[in-house]
Amino acid sequence: MSIILDKVNYTYSAGTAYEIQALKNINLKMEDGQFIGIIGHTGSGKSTLIQHLNGLMKATSGTIYYNGEDIYAEDYDLRQLRSKVGLVFQYPEHQLFETTIFDDVCYGPKNQGLTKEEAGLRAFEALKSVGLKEELYYQSPFDLSGGQKRRVAIAGVLAMRPEVLILDEPTAGLDPKGRDEILNLVSAMHKERKITIVLVSHSMEDVAQYVERIIVMNHGEMIFDDAPHEVFKHYKELEKIGLAAPQVTYLMHELSENGLPVDVNATTVSEAKDEILKALGRKVC
């Protein structure tokens, strides 16, 4: 199972003075079970890209294949695709509308044509996996805190049991604790459910320790697509487009330039710690 993008282009307001090419010749294969990070700043085309993956936006040219099927084929069921490729938008708590949290999470499964009982089971399962306390299930979603609302909204997509889960800046506007909670949650889902996860972010430091592959977008183009430490090797180019690599990457490069024999590929704090201790000849504990 996989998603393949073949020469995908997308142009906003084609033929007018405001014409913007938001995606330029994107070729991409997302393998089943991968944990992918898409990085780029506002306007880089990353949000446009993910809306193509579940058919909410249609490419101006090019083809997208989901599990080998062309999603633009005439008889292709786009609604079916949307339940397989779950998309959690930025600030997803703004889409909550039901009177209780539980009903809201049932909305997706019900749209899939499931019975009330089945939808309820899905909702329970989803709310449990986002770690919401059971006594809250029948309260209004509007009384929750920001971080809790967001988890409910994510559960709303999870309840559709997607094969691929895309999250557009799931940590925007949250405080550090809320951010870590969401990222750990997503990471745990990847490990337990083995579903493909695409995490869109503008923070390298956030994604570096979780994902196995990073796609960097800039002005509608895919400029890097590789393992994190490979991408971070280009930290000077990243900086030019306004996307700094993690602070640790800079530090390791500076240390190595000054003669300390450390591995510059370390990207997280714990990797860096081990490397530095090793280089200084101390025992790693």
Binding site: V88, P92, H94, Q95, F97, N111, V157
Partner: peptide
């Protein structure tokens, strides 16, 4: 919001008037 609900399987186009009106609730409340 429309796109977000469509990502959750919402269908704003098909059905009769009553069904269409009902489909608007997830759009109007938020």
């Amino acid at each position: 919001i429309m796109k977000a609900q469509m990502a959750r399987g919402a269908d704003f186009e098909s059905g009769n008037i009553i069904k269409k009106a009902k489909a608007m609730i997830p759009l109007l409340v938020p």
